[in-house]
Amino acid sequence: MKRSSTPLRYTLLTYRLDHLWLPAAFWALFLLLILFVPQPESKTNMAAAYLGGALPLLAGILAAYAILDDPALELQFSSPRPAWRTLFERLGMILVIVGLFAFSYQACMALIGIDLSPLGGIALRQLAWLVPCLALMALGSAGAFALAQPAAGAMLVALIWMVELLLRSWFASNEWGRYLFIYMGIYAPQNPYLIASHASLLALSLLLLAGSWALLKNQERYI
C-alpha cells in the first residue's frame, strides 16, 4: 500500500505550478474579456470559447509533456509500476485541474448572469469541454510517445486545434468531418449529430490512450 501511494505523492510534490497558474490566468483573462464585451451574445460566445476552446488546448499540450518531460523519468521507469497507472495518474491530474477550472468558471458565469443555456442542458455543457479535452489530451499523449518527443505531441495538438477552429463550418457540416469535430459542443450544440460526434471522439480518445499505454511500455525508447 505504501509503495503504491509513493508515486502519487511524488507527482503531487513535484507538480508543475504552470499546470495551475496557466488555466487560472486564462480563467481570469476570459472573465475580464466577458466583462468588457458589451453584447450579451458575445459574452456567451466568449464563455463557450474558454470552456470548449482554451481548456482543451491547455489540456492537450500539458498532456504531451505530462510524462516525458519528467526530469526523473529514468527513476520513474525503474520503479515496478505498470504503464497504465503512470499514464492514468499523470493525465488524470491534468483532467482534474481542468475540470476544477471548468466547473468554477461555469459557477462564476452563473453568478455574473451569463446564460450558458445555448450550449444545452447541464450534461451537454459538461460534454462540451470534457470531450475536446479528452480528445486533445489523448492526441497529445499518443503523439509525444509515438515520436518520443513532447514537442511533437504539442505540435499535433496545436495543429488540430487551429485547423478545426479555422475550418469549423466545414467540419460541422461535412459528412465525415463532423465525427472528428472537437468544437461541436460549443459551435453547433443544436446539431443532430452532436451525440454521435461526441461518441466518435470519445472512442477515438480511448484508442489513442490505448496506443499511448502500449507505447509507454517500451520504456527504453524514451531514455
Binding site: R16, D18, I61, P150
Partner: peptide
C-alpha cells in the same frame, strides 16, 4: 523565461 509548454500554449492562442 517561461516553460516551453507554456510558450507553446500561448503561441498557439496568440496566432489565432
Amino acid at each position: 523565461v517561461m516553460p516551453v509548454r507554456v510558450y507553446q500554449i500561448l503561441f498557439t492562442g496568440y496566432w489565432f
